[in-house]
Design a binder for these strands. Structure first.
Length: 457
RNA sequence: GGCCUUAUCGUCUAACGGUUAGGACGAAGCCUUCUCAAGGCUUAAAUCCGGGUUCGAUUCCCGGUAAGGUCACCA
């Protein structure tokens, strides 16, 4: 169970550019990142694009973008496809030394065609390797038989390319998903064939969907970009992903990247798979949002509001002072930026930007006669008229203007119709906050409009 | 099916072989409150089953069971 700290730690980021950055891949890379940074090691990023059919430059770009967004930096970059000459030289050496051989056989894809593939000469032995998170794991490799390691000298397959590259790059720790456990004995066989040392292995548990199977598209969002588009914070995603399969051994759950880098250790990595729980992610995201500087919050809210076809025309959405006034109200109601879209679509923010429309019956508190509401609203309108501009500098001041009256007449009797007059909705922020946000003029106008509505409509 | 791995509240998890089995999310209830949210408090909720070893097993061993992974000329 050594972590091998006597020589420089080198880990790798080996994503395959055959799809957008998967949330599970991101978590594996995060563990590599944390382990490496903790031990002042090096990270080699290697785009594993040996599958010419499925690898696409746009996927590689997506992966790189995602890593950058998450803050998972690396020290070297390479593409496996550009190392074909190196793989070829190893294949040649193996064939020459007899640890591999060229085999003529019918093509798997097209049985009518005969092709040459390169197979490993399997010595057929029992292999035991130590896994940092699971202990010793033993396989009988005879059942693997002489498996194919390359289509030909110019087209190496995954296992060969990985082993050669890890060796050439001096990788000391292979930290990867549990789904690679059964690949490990093959790779050890190749290592032994080329005389490469065995790295330290750590197989981390898989991220599962709600049905406990490997997280896949049918479980919902699996690409990092989807979470990014939903408005999750990268630091929150990092925090949540770190906790999926790892824990610090304390009750602490909220972490910054710096804290994770110092506290992470492979010994605390879990053995069992963990279900991805978006509800908990939401909570962590909300917690991280609380730490955001005000300017960032304003900027994010403005961006979301301006993207909405419903509000984009409204000049208030680009007014930083106005957005500042409503930012606290909004952040209380959301756990990620994308929730703003939902609120806009549900009309939960419309009253900030446009005069409300509502039926006058809503102005009645618990069935009280509308005439009562009218009287209270008239009183408030007068009080608001009389108050100086300085009273509108914060909700508390406004509250002090109205609260005694409301207490005397019954808070619901006064505050409910007032709030409806201002928002037009059954549910909304409190009337004092609304008046503060709307400003003196608009607040009075809406209150009077409600009075007029009761009288005339 | 073969091989490999795993198993504590619904979920993420803690617990030198000795704890009233702890925390967090979520849920429920209460408080606050004109409504919603936020906030505060409280409650419910778990050691897969069966054998051993031991004075004593969540913990160690064995066997079941269940779940997952993997069995490519993909990675």
């Amino acid at each position: 169970m050594q972590e091998n700290t006597d020589k420089k730690v080198i880990v790798r980021f080996p994503p395959s550019p055959t799809g957008n950055l998967h949330i599970g891949t991101a978590r594996t890379l995060l563990f590599n990142f944390l382990f490496s940074r903790k031990h002042s090691g090096k990270i080699v990023m290697r785009s594993e694009d040996t599958d010419k059919e499925r690898s696409k430059p746009e996927f590689e770009e997506n992966i790189l973008d995602g890593l950058k967004w998450l803050g998972l930096s690396f020290d070297e970059f390479s593409r496996q496809s550009e190392r074909a000459e190196i793989h070829k030289s190893y294949l040649k050496k193996m064939v020459e030394s007899g640890t591999a051989y060229v085999s003529k056989e019918p093509s798997k894809n097209n049985p009518d065609v005969e092709v040459e593939v390169i197979r490993l000469k399997n010595p057929g032995k029992v292999v035991t390797f130590n896994d940092v998170v699971r202990g010793d794991i033993t396989f009988d490799t005879t059942e693997l038989s002489d498996f194919v390691i390359a289509k030909n000298f110019d087209e190496p397959l995954y296992h060969l390319a990985v082993v050669v590259d890890d060796f050439e790059m001096g990788v000391t720790h292979v930290i990867r998903g549990e789904d690679h456990i059964s690949n490990t004995p093959r790779q050890i066989l190749i290592q032994e064939a080329i005389g490469a040392p065995r790295p330290v292995y750590a197989h981390i548990p898989l991220i599962l969907g709600a049905d406990r199977s490997k997280l896949s598209k049918r479980h919902g969002a699996t690409s990092l970009v989807e979470y990014r588009n939903q408005g999750y914070l990268p630091e929150a995603l990092i925090n949540y992903l770190a906790l999926l399969g790892w824990n610090p051994g304390t009750d602490k759950e909220l972490f910054t990247m710096d804290e994770l880098m110092t506290e992470f250790s492979l010994e605390k990595v879990q053995t069992g798979g963990a279900i991805f729980d978006q509800v908990k992610l939401d909570w962590i995201n909300k917690e991280h949002m609380k730490n955001l500087p005000k300017e960032t919050v304003i900027k994010e809210i403005m961006a979301r509001l301006n993207k909405s076809p419903i509000l984009a025309q409204n000049s208030k959405t680009s007014d930083p002072d106005f957005i500042n006034k409503i930012s606290n109200i909004i952040t209380q109601h959301i756990s990620k930026w994308g929730d703003i879209d939902t609120m806009v679509e549900a009309g939960d923010l419309s009253f900030f930007f446009n005069s409300p429309s509502y039926s006058k019956e809503l102005l009645s508190w618990k069935g009280a006669p509308l005439e009562e509401s009218e009287a209270h609203l008239q009183w408030v309108a007068d009080a608001l008229e009389k108050a100086g501009e300085d009273k509108y500098s914060n909700p508390e001041e406004i509250k002090s203007l109205i609260f005694d009256y409301a207490t005397e007449k019954g808070k619901g009797n006064v505050l409910w119709p007032l709030r409806v007059a201002l928002s037009g909705r059954e549910k909304s922020p409190d009337p004092f906050s609304l008046i503060y946000v709307l400003g003196k003029e608009e607040a009075i106008e809406r209150t009077k409009a409600a009075v007029w509505k009761i009288k005339n409509a």
